[in-house]
């Protein structure tokens, strides 16, 4: 990276910020903006994308990314760069419940292959796919830092550890 200590600048600021998102979303983004120096609003780009993704049912659109750029006075390309670099941003619907299954070394050693097989058989989908009713999506993720409870998966904000096929059934049955 080149050495730059100033934020990426935008030729023309978007003035009508109140037309973006909803008031609630703007307030949520503002709590993040307040954490960084005034000239570094772009530091809130990642949390802002997360907030609007959650608001939009779990995925981003070009329009939403553009609005984040408008809101934070960033060039749209800078927002696209961030949105395409990090794995937690989705660019297509991933279902009401995105099942993030870890298959990295510790989970693999402890049987994540069997868990994957079980989920595949139960839901009829593979990685990157969504059930026809839109209830579940399945995603392969890299180590989520819970190897002591391998095999594990994350759905929403919750970690589920020491998975067995029976436990997976219980968890999925409990989700609408």
């Amino acid at each position: 990276m080149s050495l730059r200590s100033e934020p990426m600048v935008r030729a023309q600021k978007f003035e009508d910020k109140e037309s973006l998102f909803t008031r609630e979303v703007r307030e949520q983004i503002d709590t993040w903006v307040a954490k960084y120096p005034a000239e570094w609003k772009q530091s809130a780009c990642m949390p802002a994308l997360t907030i609007v993704q959650d608001m939009n049912g779990g995925y981003l659109t070009r329009d939403l990314m553009d609005q984040v750029a408008d809101y934070l006075d960033m060039p749209p390309i800078a927002v696209y760069e961030v949105a395409s670099f990090y794995s937690m941003y989705e660019h297509k619907p991933m279902g009401r419940h995105k099942i993030c299954l870890c298959t990295n070394v510790s989970c693999m050693i402890c049987g994540s292959d069997n868990i994957l097989e079980h989920i595949r058989n139960r839901l009829g989908i593979g990685f990157g796919e969504v059930t026809p009713d839109g209830r579940f999506g399945l995603k392969e993720v890299e180590c989520l830092g819970a190897c002591g409870g391998a095999p594990m998966m994350q759905i929403g904000h919750t970690y589920y550890e020491n998975l067995t096929p029976e436990l997976v059934d219980q968890i999925l049955d409990g989700l609408e």
């Binding site: 990642m46 994308l49 937690m88």
Partner: peptide, 8 residues
């Protein structure tokens, strides 16, 4: 302040 990553 706490900052949250997004998977990388």
């Amino acid at each position: 302040h706490t900052h949250l990553g997004s998977g990388a």
